[in-house]
């Protein structure tokens, strides 16, 4: 557990702070009543990355995001966005926090105008144009004049993303952006995030869906009960655990024996017989198995997914409330 954290964290510590879109050091939130929602969080989000912020529900992701945006004041620790004081950084940050929230009696367009008016650095002269672009980007142009009350869940989510894209952004903070979306909408959001990231914007996206983060992100951090348990590039996180060979066979005992004699580590025999591959070539292992008379029905090399990493780090399934 600690090994991965250190390995993953190392490259970031060396990087100068101006290269980071988000830096937190020792960020802690203790709510009244003593509950520690976020515990000494050290995040380093490199500029230009798509950074997945993973954790089960209740692990402190949203509280962290609220602290980053200045909605909740930390009990201890510091944080900086884009290396700027918060009031200067926020106009450059688009945010989606805990789902969409709009004025139900206003149209989608009027809602965006309202939030644009709240930004003291936004120009009233270009508001119309920028709002039009943002709506266009999320595919809501046709529904711009419709009241928010009559929007579907997916349209609401898209409007929230449009609100996050009202100005030129250097950083997008998206809290569970695919919540409530159908598969089609989810794909669209992922494509949008990739497109935005391709334009150089850093995207910080929280999620409890591992597959989503694995598909979208270049980096990830994993939270559990308010603590950061790992952070780094997706590759380094997954690479922290060795690839395994998995043998499907009617004679698991024999197969396990062969794998052990081959010198493979951590041989396990459950539904499949598996072991750490180490430096061995899988085809050689297969040849040996067959030579030893083990009936091989299937043979696969399994690279650990983020989910395996998570289970390895926390010792529990993912959708368990922390």
């Amino acid at each position: 557990m600690t090994t991965v954290t250190q390995e993953a964290g190392a490259p970031f510590r060396a990087a100068p702070p101006s290269d980071a879109a988000i830096v937190t050091s020792g960020l802690t939130k203790r709510f009244r009543g003593g509950q520690v929602a976020v515990d000494a969080l050290d995040l380093a989000v490199p500029r230009g990355s798509v950074y997945g912020f993973l954790g089960p529900n209740g692990s402190g992701k949203t509280t962290t995001i609220r602290m980053l945006l200045g909605l909740v004041s930390p009990t201890e620790g510091e944080h900086a966005l884009l290396g700027l004081p918060l009031d200067q950084a926020l106009p450059r940050v688009g945010a989606l926090v805990e789902g969409p929230a709009f004025y139900p009696y206003l149209s989608g367009e009027a809602n965006l105008r309202r939030f644009d008016a709240a930004d003291p650095t936004a120009s009233a002269a270009t508001a119309r144009e920028r709002i039009g672009e943002a709506l266009e980007r999320v595919g809501l142009t046709a529904a711009a004049g419709k009241r928010f009350r009559n929007y579907s869940l997916g349209m609401r989510q898209r409007l929230a993303i449009a609100a996050a894209l009202l100005g030129p952004r250097e950083l997008l903070i998206l809290d569970e952006p695919t919540n409530g979306l159908d598969p089609q909408g989810t794909r669209e959001v992922r494509a949008l995030v990739k497109e935005i990231a391709a334009g150089g914007t850093t995207v910080f996206v929280s999620s409890h869906l591992l597959a989503e983060v694995e598909q979208m992100c270049t980096h990830a951090a994993i939270m559990r009960t308010g603590k950061l348990v790992a952070q780094g590039t997706i590759a380094s996180l997954s690479g922290g655990r060795a690839a395994r060979i998995r043998v499907e066979t009617p004679g698991p005992a024999d197969a396990a024996r062969v794998l052990t004699t081959l010198g493979l580590a951590d041989v396990r025999a459950d539904a499949y017989v598996s072991a750490e591959l180490g430096g061995h070539a899988p085809e050689e292992i297969n040849a040996v198995l067959v030579r030893e008379g083990v009936a091989v029905r299937g043979l696969a090399v399994v690279r650990p997914s983020l989910e395996d990493v998570f289970v390895g780090l926390t010792g529990e399934g993912f959708d368990v409330d922390g």
Partner: peptide, 14 residues
């Protein structure tokens, strides 16, 4: 109550 406060403050309205 409507949740719009968090978006106004993140805008940032101040």
């Amino acid at each position: 109550g409507a949740g719009t406060l968090r978006y106004l403050l993140a805008a940032p309205a101040g």
